[in-house]
Design a protein around this nucleic acid. Sequence first.
DNA 1: CAGTGGTCTAGACCACATC
DNA 2: ATGTGGTCTAGACCACTGG
Lengths: 245, 245
Amino acid sequence: MPASTATPSFAPLYLQIKSLLERSLDEREWRPGEAIPSEIELAQRYGVSQGTVRKAIDVLAAENLLVRRQGKGTFVATHTEERSSLPRFLRIRRNDGGELTPASRLLDARRGKAGADVARALALRTGDAVLVLRRVLEYGNEPVVLDEITLPAALFRGLTKARYDAYRGSMYGFFESEFGVRMIKAQERIRAVAADAATAKILRTESGAPLLAVDRVTLTYGERPVEVRRGLCVTRAFHYLNELH
Amino acid sequence: MPASTATPSFAPLYLQIKSLLERSLDEREWRPGEAIPSEIELAQRYGVSQGTVRKAIDVLAAENLLVRRQGKGTFVATHTEERSSLPRFLRIRRNDGGELTPASRLLDARRGKAGADVARALALRTGDAVLVLRRVLEYGNEPVVLDEITLPAALFRGLTKARYDAYRGSMYGFFESEFGVRMIKAQERIRAVAADAATAKILRTESGAPLLAVDRVTLTYGERPVEVRRGLCVTRAFHYLNELH
DNA sequence: CAGTGGTCTAGACCACATC
DNA sequence: ATGTGGTCTAGACCACTGG
């Protein structure tokens, strides 16, 4: 007795269940940090066995959308509980292995219009309103990364520097709890560039010094792009860490 | 009726089975590209149910040690069948999205002794014999990456430039089929550096130009390190691609 | 204690590949 | 037709959490 509703029909049952769960997440039926219903409840709700629900949840847990906690339940992943641990998407590390988490200092937040490149990356039209934030990541008062972050203004109404400054936690925690925008995954393209004068000054290095340029596109549910950012990073005492499997 | 043998005992059964399978892979009971026994056979061999074997294989497949092929069997992952598709560990891409696979040109292969850093990374003693290869990756006659690859000489007896030049396929395919060394996973640390004169000449850029420096440590079974390499990469028309989940 | 996720089993059936 | 992996079920029991 399979489920009555389905999304990609003719896919395996557990993938259909996965789609249903994703839709519920997207529609905010359960909020970040909250527990979703137990496997048994979900099995009843969808009219499938517990094992099938389990498999659907397995996939979502592997994609970091859900987090299992034995004996407690299954929870919606959140960026707001990453206190004291380093943000999930930050790959910058100290060369000496120190675990220091960086401080984030917002330089400014201004309104602007999307250029052609940004519009394409964010699935907007050229000229649509965007917000541009510039911020510095500092490791013990040492500026290491200068980020320029571009957001669709429509999704972040009311974002101001003051409001960010008042928030305690990671930037993605801020986006999630203040604007309901959840960053699920991202793609980064990394290049080496020479520092221009303005950047060099902010990062306390010499003009022309080699920097890592990290261009990120960040996606929410349904592969929708909701952020583009360029990070410029000094790599004298730091590096970008990547695991290959 | 659980398995009689075990490796990390007191771990879940399927993880014990996973360890047994890993040991068999490490001991070359099945060679790269070959099929391992069917799930039913393995279940009988270890005295567990098919479902438990399945779960063990699931994990190994997720770690890219095994590859499932429906209707055919489960196969030992190999670097030698990556012809025409790009090597698994190569993250360099064209900016314009072209899919061109690079050609690998070996400059030289020489014997040397491990310095302190290399010895630590490869779990050798300082002064132990190593091989040092230098090679260039070229995309349509354009040199893009200069790699310096350091290997423990003990594992690669008989490696010469002539022998590599005679081989058709990726370098890891060469290591796997000629020396039985299988690269399983790797860790990369990325920095931005300025090109020195010699490197600039090889990569046809200017001395001092910003380059990506990619330091890789590569591991086989049992987390044993068997390669360190430094890649220097021009990123005018190329970039390093990374997916964050 | 009850409720949750985690493991393990046994068996049925499906989809695919090969002969 | 046979053998392989892939899906789905139902039920038993374990391990952890919290009242």
